[in-house]
Design a protein around this nucleic acid. Structure first.
Length: 259
DNA sequence: CATATGTCCTGAGAGC
DNA sequence: TGCTCTCAGGACATAT
């Protein structure tokens, strides 16, 4: 859709809300990006990346409510940035963000290689790697799974899903977990994230999340515990899903079968 | 060093 | 009905 295209323009959209972060400033961004070709697209943790012929890369960090689109946006009020293209299947790449906590950055290849201090990708982890990186931590496992320096790519919703599939209590300190626990975490992480990616993510009840074509994801229908408080546990059938707060974030789990 | 907390943002929904 | 309050969470800055 965008690979092979040449960047023609970079502009802020006429959004009346507080401007999102664009780095470097718009003028420098434009000067460095316009004229480059898009050589590939990819992902680093939760960020989407467009690799340019100059060696630089445009990194989109959407946080909860940002969308990177090659289709019409959900509305124009929250459209934030437009990157015009020529010579490929998309006329432009849009960055849309309802709450505006996300950012769009142009990074040099050196900055990109530094990877923002992120850990290995969550899909590239192994049981042993998990144990090495956070196995001695006193933190609760749910909180540690969200630390992007441990492994990159797990968000709040997926941390609850992974631990439910693994059958592990989200409150357990990492340092109490055995090799068998780390194996389960490792396998569950891959299973949950691979399926979520295959189904194009989770569009929650607020309807914000969309894929690049502004289509809903499908993984919300597969959620085992997230946003299912008081419902029957899909594993044991007898526990009721509980909601607690850890590190100011909601955690959902089954008190009966997650030990 | 490890870990915890406060901050940013907007819109939906609750409660009165 | 219209107001105020709370909440959602990813990354980063600052505090312990």
């Amino acid at each position: 859709m965008v690979v092979g295209g040449r960047i023609r323009s970079v502009d802020r959209a006429a959004c009346r809300l507080r401007p999102i972060a664009v780095a470097p400033g718009l003028a420098a961004f434009r000067r460095r990006a316009v004229g480059s070709r898009v050589e590939g697209v990819g992902r680093i943790g939760k960020r989407a990346v467009m690799h340019l012929s100059s060696g630089s890369a445009i990194v989109f960090e959407p946080r909860m409510t940002g969308l990177v689109l090659v289709a019409d946006p959900p509305n124009v009020e929250h459209l934030r940035l437009k990157i015009g293209l020529a010579g490929c299947g998309a006329r432009e790449v849009l960055y849309w963000d309802r709450r505006g906590l996300g950012s769009v950055r142009l990074l040099t290849s050196a900055e990109l290689a530094a990877r923002f201090g992120l850990g290995p990708d969550a899909l590239e982890m192994t049981a042993e790697r998990w144990r090495e990186r956070i196995g001695r931590s006193a933190r609760a496992i749910k909180v540690a799974l969200l630390d992007q320096r441990a492994a990159a790519g797990i968000g709040n919703l997926y941390a609850s899903e992974i631990l439910h599939l693994a059958g592990i209590d989200p409150r357990r300190p990492c340092r109490d977990l055995t090799r068998a626990h780390w194996s389960k975490i490792d396998a569950s992480t891959r299973e949950v994230l691979a399926e979520a990616i295959r189904l194009e993510g989770s569009t929650l009840s607020d309807g914000t999340y969309r894929n690049a074509l502004n289509q809903e994801g499908g993984y919300q229908n597969r959620h085992r515990v997230y946003d299912r408080e008081r419902q029957a546990c899909p594993s044991c059938g007898r526990g009721r899903i509980a909601r607690i707060v850890q590190a100011q974030r909601a955690t959902f789990y089954c008190p009966r079968c997650q030990k």
